[in-house]
Design a protein around this nucleic acid. Structure first.
Lengths: 163, 163
DNA sequence: TGACATAGTTAGGGTAAACTAACTATATTA
DNA sequence: TAATATAGTTAGTTTACCCTAACTATGTCA
């Protein structure tokens, strides 16, 4: 856990993550693509890059490609990993729609500390382990959920449920 | 799920939640106490109350106690419920320290939509159900975690683990 | 009842993040 | 190589927070 420093805002973490992902995908992170992937204007990207450079997290020269510094990369990687873990928990275990899960992971990745993320990762392993042993937890949970919701739907029908 | 409207910022949701909790605890929400519970200045509270009044969520008159409107109350209740569910998941299942869990819940309650929260609640029920049936999931998970961490600690010792 | 403490408000400022519009640099291609 | 399109930057604005300091209202008790 080399990162966890720098007191970055959610917004700056998003920029780091975007640069990290683009560098992986296309070997190069361009301002335009960062803007697109985060849904912000190109001007906003320029502003963020200047801040990241000041903080020593990104190598930024006007009109050039962006790369992460040795300091910035592990921080970006950690954010990206948090995202991955959350998304996997939401989709593979909770059964959330992928696009909703993706969006939620994107927000929650900035609010959950390393302790919680580590436990979540452990939980994902735990679920995998269970399915190898022939008692698939994700499956059992899914069935349990269905039972619950049909129960409460019944309640609502008969009692004209509150909420 | 009567709430989920109003496009509130995290900050405004926090104010609503604080008013909701104080009204429950002391039957009355005072500016000073809202400020204290959120760790902001009294002036910030005044500002937020004006916005909440504008949005029709709080009954606010200068120099008077604050109450929630019929519109505001269910929204506040939902935020508070999200908080409770998250905290319970973190503490009772993941085994996170209460103060860390409390803080994380406070942040994450604004980022996770009703779908995810509902599933999480369902999961909490699922775990309770399992313990009644004599196979305590929380317990099994805790043991699994301990095994995992001691394994990876071993790895780190022998390989001088990266990360 | 008037002085003092406490609570609440107002005014004025700061910062972070976004935007648009206009400008500059770079790349392409005829 | 000049014209044009695309990419990136700069300047100026806006919004949403938060803050402090100074003011006003309220309540208490001698």
């Amino acid at each position: 856990m080399a990162a966890e420093n720098a007191n970055l805002s959610s917004s700056l973490e998003d920029y780091l993550e975007a640069i990290f992902n683009l560098s992986k995908e296309s070997n190069i992170a361009r301002s335009k693509d960062i803007a697109k992937s985060l849904g912000v204007s190109r001007a906003s990207v320029t502003g963020a890059l200047r801040v990241l450079k000041e903080k020593g997290l990104a190598n930024y020269k006007p009109y050039d490609y962006v790369t992460l510094t040795e300091t910035g990369r592990p921080i970006a990687a950690e954010v990206a990993q948090k995202h991955k873990i959350l998304e996997s928990f939401f989709v593979d275990f909770l059964g959330i729609e992928p696009n909703i899960a993706q969006e939620a992971a994107c927000k929650a990745e900035h609010t959950l500390g390393p302790g919680i993320i580590a436990k979540l990762l452990c939980f994902i392993e735990f679920v995998k382990h269970s399915s190898k042993n022939g008692c698939d937890l994700a499956d059992q949970f899914e069935k349990f959920c269905k039972k619950q919701t049909s129960k409460s739907a019944g309640k609502r029908d008969s009692k004209n449920g509150a909420e």
